[in-house]
């Protein structure tokens, strides 16, 4: 089952290294992700007002040089979000309260698209909340989010749009999976059921 491959331990860099080392020897799949999207830390902003910042930030995609995403404001409270990428690999990241999941993904070099830059017009930022309890802690999606979710690839009952989910204390420890065309959740035995 899918869940079995996912360790619930928090952010263990050592483990991450081991996992990748392992993958490289047996690896079938590409491990190389985006061409250097190491993004500079941005001041935290709410989704709606952040569009311009988002836009600017994205313009630096190919030029930004290495900079760690975690060196931002020390005083900001952070939670841990665990992304589960297209290879089923678990990537824990620290996210300041108030930041959207899409921004958090981009700041941490996670391969999550955001074609419309958070204007609720694309559904490419689709993520699947893997734990029902966490899904239920989220505010209900708006009609507009549901309209876009209707069209999301691989929609599940615990699907959300990453640009609309904002980091809050209750979400500390949530697992968010990024849907993949080459890996089928049903095959992995993951069938989320909310409520």
């Amino acid at each position: 089952m899918f869940g079995h491959r996912i360790s619930r331990s928090g952010s263990a860099i050592v483990k991450q290294l081991a996992r990748e080392g392992y993958k490289s020897t047996y690896g079938r799949r590409n491990l190389q992700r985006s061409y250097g999207h190491y993004l500079p830390s941005l001041p935290m902003v709410q989704t709606r007002t952040s569009q311009e910042a988002f836009f600017l930030k994205n313009h630096r995609f190919y030029t930004a040089s290495a900079s760690t995403p975690e060196e931002g404001d020390e005083e900001t409270e952070k939670i841990t979000i665990i992304f589960v990428d297209k290879d089923g690999e678990e990537i824990p990241v620290k996210v300041p309260i108030g930041m959207s999941v899409l921004e958090a993904a981009h700041e941490n070099d996670i391969d999550l698209e955001g074609a419309c830059e958070a204007s609720l017009a694309c559904s490419t930022c689709h993520v699947i909340v893997m734990d029902t309890e966490y899904y239920n802690k989220l505010e209900e999606p708006t009609d507009e989010e549901n309209d876009m979710l209707d069209l999301a690839f691989g929609l599940t009952e615990t699907s959300r749009l990453g640009c609309q989910v904002i980091a809050s204390p209750e979400l500390d420890g949530v697992h968010l999976a990024i849907p993949s065309a080459t890996r089928n959740f049903a095959v992995d035995g993951f069938v989320p059921k909310p409520h």
Binding site: L17, N30, T68, I91
Partner: peptide
């Protein structure tokens, strides 16, 4: 570059080459 990215970078270099 954080250790995770460094690892990724090295692995991907090795892998794709």
């Amino acid at each position: 570059m954080s250790r995770r990215y460094l690892a990724r970078y090295l692995v991907s270099r090795y892998f794709s080459s």
